[in-house]
Computed example of a mutant assay.
Amino acid sequence: MRGFRWPPPPDGGPRTWGPGPSGPRTGRPALPEPETELAATPHGVHLEQLVTGAGDPVTVFAHGLGSGIAATRPFGSGVTGRRLFFQFRGHGRSAAPPGPWSYHDLARDLRAVADQGLATRAFGASLGAGALCRLLADSPARFDRLVFYLPAVLDRPRVDAARRRLAALLDALGSGDVGQLAEVVQLELPPAVRNTPSGWAYLRQRLDQLMRDGLASGLADLSGSVPVRDAKELGEVAAPALVIGCVGDELHPVEVAEQLAATLPQATLHVYDRPGVLWAKRADLRERISAFLNE
């Protein structure tokens, strides 16, 4: 039987047991994290930010709950112009002002980065998609082009599975036990990727970042919040939008993507047939996103 084990084998593994190869295998190491900066905002919350690329147009990328810049960068690899990546409050080195926080607060973070960077296009993944929805409900004409990747919530609270996952992540971080944290983080990987060289590389980088920067406990309140009270608030968004969903992802129900695409007047919906899109369909996903944004 093969599966996940922590800590990783000292030779870089993964080391398997049972029938099959068991010698050292070193997998491609994770890329070193680039230097980021702390940017001041008009609402007084300093946000960690990374700027890549050059020229126009400018695209802002908003990450998912408990995630960050490193996990969001692959989505922008083929996107032309300048790319703005940042960490929401409570993530990474960004500030964690007194809570509770709402999607209005996240939308202010997103708007500040977009406005200061003169972004005309926006990408939002999961939590970032929710923050983008809140911003657009207040300012429907803010962006010229939009991408929503695996939206998790719209006008109904997150499913119980998402709340339990976040609670487990915060508990593991609070314990300071890297093994316990690894058990939670490895659930982000598709089963076929766990205990593989690429899976270990991802896990090591993710654990390093979480153990170094942590996550603010105030994020727990967001799991019961919604970006909009009624999806009809987004009915005035005229910008072309690409909504990407996935069948079988319990943290990002495909019904949310379908509802969002049906609400946005100029939306195109694409649904993948199985979870783990960034691992199983990475090339197709990046090409789909860049082709849409670069159009």
Results as ranks from 00 to 15, higher is better:
S290L: 12
H91R: 04
A95N: 07
D221V: 12
L293G: 13
R121N: 14
G44H: 03
G68H: 05
R73A: 10
P253L: 09
Q186L: 03
L278T: 09
N195A: 15
R164T: 08
E37T: 10
P9N: 09
G276L: 04
R108T: 06
C133M: 15
Q205G: 11
L135P: 02
A168Y: 00
A239V: 04
V247W: 08
L203K: 08
A119M: 00
P275H: 05
A125E: 09
L132D: 08
T59V: 01
A238N: 08
A152T: 04
T52A: 14
P14T: 05
P29S: 11
E233G: 02
A54C: 05
M211G: 03
Y149E: 04
L234R: 13
F86E: 00
G3P: 06
G128A: 12
L150S: 09
M211N: 04
T36C: 08
A96K: 00
R5I: 11
S67I: 00
P151K: 05
T41G: 12
A131T: 03
D208H: 15
P34H: 14
G66S: 06
L38A: 04
A201Y: 07
Q266K: 08
V254I: 06
S67H: 13
V45D: 09
A239S: 13
L278I: 12
A257T: 01
G55P: 00
R82W: 14
G235I: 08
A238S: 15
L127D: 03
L234C: 14
Q205P: 01
G18S: 01
M211W: 09
Q209F: 15
P140R: 01
W200I: 12
P253W: 14
L285K: 04
P19M: 07
R28N: 03
T59D: 10
A231L: 08
A220L: 08
R28Y: 05
L170V: 14
I244S: 14
S225I: 01
V185D: 10
A192V: 06
P275C: 03
E295K: 13
P21A: 15
Y103P: 06
L65D: 00
V185C: 15
L210H: 07
L47A: 07
G128N: 10
L136K: 09
P197Y: 10
P197H: 07
G12K: 07
H252Y: 04
C246E: 05
L38Q: 05
A95W: 06
L278H: 11
L260F: 11
Q49L: 03
L264H: 15
R15E: 15
R282L: 03
L127G: 06
L203H: 11
P191W: 10
A62F: 03
S77V: 06
P100G: 04
G179C: 10
D230F: 08
L215F: 15
R194Y: 10
T263K: 13
A137W: 00
G44Q: 05
Y103S: 11
P97G: 14
F88N: 10
G12E: 00
M211D: 03
G12S: 07
